[in-house]
Computed example of a mutant assay.
Amino acid sequence: MDPIRVMVVDDHPMWRDAVERDLAAAGLQVVAVAANGAEALARFGAARPQVVVLDLQIPAPNGVEVTAEIVRQDPSVRVLILSASGEQADVLAAVKAGATGYLVKSASREELLDAVGRVAAGDTVFTPGLAGLVLGEYRRMLSEPDANDQPQLTERETEVLRLVAKGLSYKQIAERLVLSHRTVQNHVQNTLRKLQLHNRVELTRYAIEQGLDD
């Protein structure tokens, strides 16, 4: 398989260089680096990364704005926030903008590499302890949908969706429900089709909205 193509965006040179070095040493391809939001947006189009490892607190435009813009340009890109802030408001803003994962900078090298691989594969990844806070707050912020307009999911599809909302990988869901990896993928694809959603990130948001992350 081709190495995962990654772009690193951070305004601290030593930190940016360390992340770039760790990614490269693990066999990933760092296709671009940037020190601020303007550089990130300028280099994103030509670099075509699969994953963007992005700090939130960067010179304008900030990480949330950069996330929203690159996801608008390429909905297939995965944004992994790597920030010093573990504040709930920052995490929520990043997720709403389209980020697929959020790690605080105290994460280990191994956690970072694992997170890059997981978000590239379509999983959502949060630093432990943040996911529950974010999912609960996200649900509270959303108005109650009209139940009459909701598509009908099977019990198994709802069960899979609930585990997606908790941030489990397809492999973990398969083990939890004693199903094959492909069966889990099929359930997710069927659910996406019924809900007229396009990817796992949107599916996770839908599950949060429905309160399925409890």
Rank of each mutant, 00 (worst) to 15 (best):
L142M: 10
L203M: 04
E144Q: 09
R118A: 14
E209F: 02
T154C: 08
Q50M: 14
S143F: 09
L135M: 11
T100D: 13
A93Y: 03
L103V: 06
V51E: 02
L133V: 12
A93N: 11
M7A: 07
N190M: 12
R5W: 13
V77T: 11
Q88K: 10
S143I: 11
D2M: 14
L103P: 12
T127W: 02
A174N: 09
L153G: 02
F44G: 00
L130M: 07
V77D: 03
Y170M: 11
E202L: 06
A35M: 09
V71W: 05
G132V: 13
R162P: 03
L103H: 01
G98R: 06
D214R: 10
A115G: 05
M7R: 03
S83V: 15
A47V: 09
I70T: 06
L153H: 06
D55F: 12
L177E: 10
I81H: 01
T154R: 06
Q185L: 15
Y138Q: 06
R109G: 03
R205F: 06
A42L: 13
T183Y: 09
A18E: 06
A40R: 00
T191G: 05
V8D: 10
Q88G: 03
V52Q: 01
Q172F: 10
L28F: 12
K96M: 12
V6F: 08
V116C: 02
T191F: 04
T100F: 07
D22Q: 13
H198A: 14
H187N: 05
R139C: 07
R43D: 04
A115W: 08
Y138T: 01
V188Y: 00
Q172K: 08
G167F: 07
D213V: 14
I173P: 09
Q150M: 15
Q152I: 15
Q50N: 03
N36L: 04
V66L: 08
A25E: 13
V95H: 00
D114N: 08
V201K: 02
R205W: 04
V9T: 05
Q185K: 05
G211C: 13
R118N: 07
Y102C: 11
A97V: 13
A207H: 05
A42T: 10
M14S: 04
L80S: 04
R21V: 10
A131Q: 08
T204K: 03
V119R: 01
E69A: 14
K194I: 14
R118I: 09
V71A: 01
K166W: 02
R193M: 07
